[in-house]
Amino acid sequence: MIIYGSGLSPFVRKVLFFAHEKGITVDLQMAGMGAGGEDFAAASPFLKRPGDMAAADAAVRDELPPLFDYLERTIPETGFLVDDRLTLADISVVCPLVNLDHCDVTMDPVRWPRTIAYRNAILGRPGIADLVAGERRLLAA
């Protein structure tokens, strides 16, 4: 299966995490942010671009705390959202949290300890941890 994009995208990351968990081999073709060529343009006509920093700062300040509060009171003791096992629901919640980490957005460990533990447990899974480590190496280069 060919995946067009970058693992830095939460959309692509969800597919990569899910494929890894299911043992599906994928061929990641780097695309997006002006790269990818005609095949990518045909598969992704929206060609999403990042927003502005003022909007990002406002979201971190005003929109993220209520979302983290919700996760903190919603994440079950089992550590998974559905059926006591990793599902696409968990992957969909954690993937954007990776981008926040990449942008040095931190969660208060006193206010959101369950959410932090949930994120860390999923990101610590074999394969998923490797994918995120690869993203960190790419960003550090």
Rank of each mutant, 00 (worst) to 15 (best):
1 M>L: 12
1 M>V: 12
1 M>D: 07
2 I>G: 00
2 I>K: 15
3 I>F: 08
4 Y>I: 01
5 G>H: 04
5 G>Y: 04
7 G>A: 07
8 L>K: 11
8 L>H: 08
9 S>T: 04
10 P>S: 11
11 F>E: 01
11 F>P: 01
13 R>C: 09
15 V>T: 07
17 F>P: 01
17 F>I: 07
19 A>I: 03
20 H>D: 10
21 E>Q: 15
21 E>R: 12
22 K>D: 00
22 K>C: 10
24 I>T: 04
25 T>C: 00
26 V>G: 00
26 V>Q: 00
27 D>N: 11
27 D>G: 00
27 D>Y: 01
29 Q>N: 11
30 M>E: 13
31 A>G: 07
31 A>T: 06
33 M>C: 06
33 M>P: 02
34 G>C: 05
34 G>F: 06
35 A>G: 01
36 G>K: 09
38 E>T: 14
38 E>G: 06
38 E>H: 10
38 E>K: 15
39 D>T: 15
39 D>L: 15
39 D>H: 13
42 A>M: 09
43 A>F: 12
43 A>S: 15
44 S>Y: 05
46 F>V: 09
46 F>P: 00
47 L>C: 03
47 L>E: 13
48 K>Q: 11
48 K>G: 00
50 P>F: 02
51 G>W: 01
51 G>Q: 05
52 D>K: 00
56 A>V: 11
58 A>T: 12
59 A>D: 10
60 V>S: 08
63 E>M: 13
66 P>H: 11
66 P>L: 09
67 L>P: 00
67 L>K: 14
68 F>Q: 03
69 D>P: 03
70 Y>M: 14
71 L>E: 05
71 L>I: 06
74 T>R: 14
79 G>V: 06
81 L>Y: 06
81 L>C: 08
82 V>Y: 10
82 V>M: 13
84 D>A: 15
85 R>M: 07
85 R>W: 00
86 L>I: 12
87 T>P: 10
88 L>C: 01
90 D>G: 07
90 D>A: 08
91 I>F: 02
91 I>V: 15
92 S>I: 05
93 V>L: 14
93 V>W: 04
93 V>G: 02
93 V>F: 08
95 C>D: 11
95 C>K: 06
96 P>G: 11
96 P>V: 09
98 V>F: 11
98 V>Q: 09
100 L>K: 09
101 D>T: 12
101 D>Q: 14
103 C>R: 15
106 T>F: 09
107 M>Q: 10
109 P>C: 05
110 V>K: 14
110 V>H: 09
111 R>V: 03
112 W>N: 03
113 P>H: 05
113 P>Q: 05
115 T>L: 06
116 I>Y: 05
117 A>F: 09
118 Y>F: 15
118 Y>G: 08
118 Y>S: 07
118 Y>I: 10
120 N>V: 00
120 N>Y: 01
121 A>D: 07
123 L>F: 04
123 L>I: 06
125 R>M: 11
126 P>H: 12
126 P>D: 12
130 D>A: 14
130 D>S: 12
132 V>H: 03
132 V>G: 02
132 V>R: 02
132 V>S: 04
133 A>L: 05
136 R>L: 10
136 R>Y: 08
138 L>T: 12
138 L>E: 10
140 A>Q: 14
140 A>I: 06
141 A>P: 01
141 A>C: 03
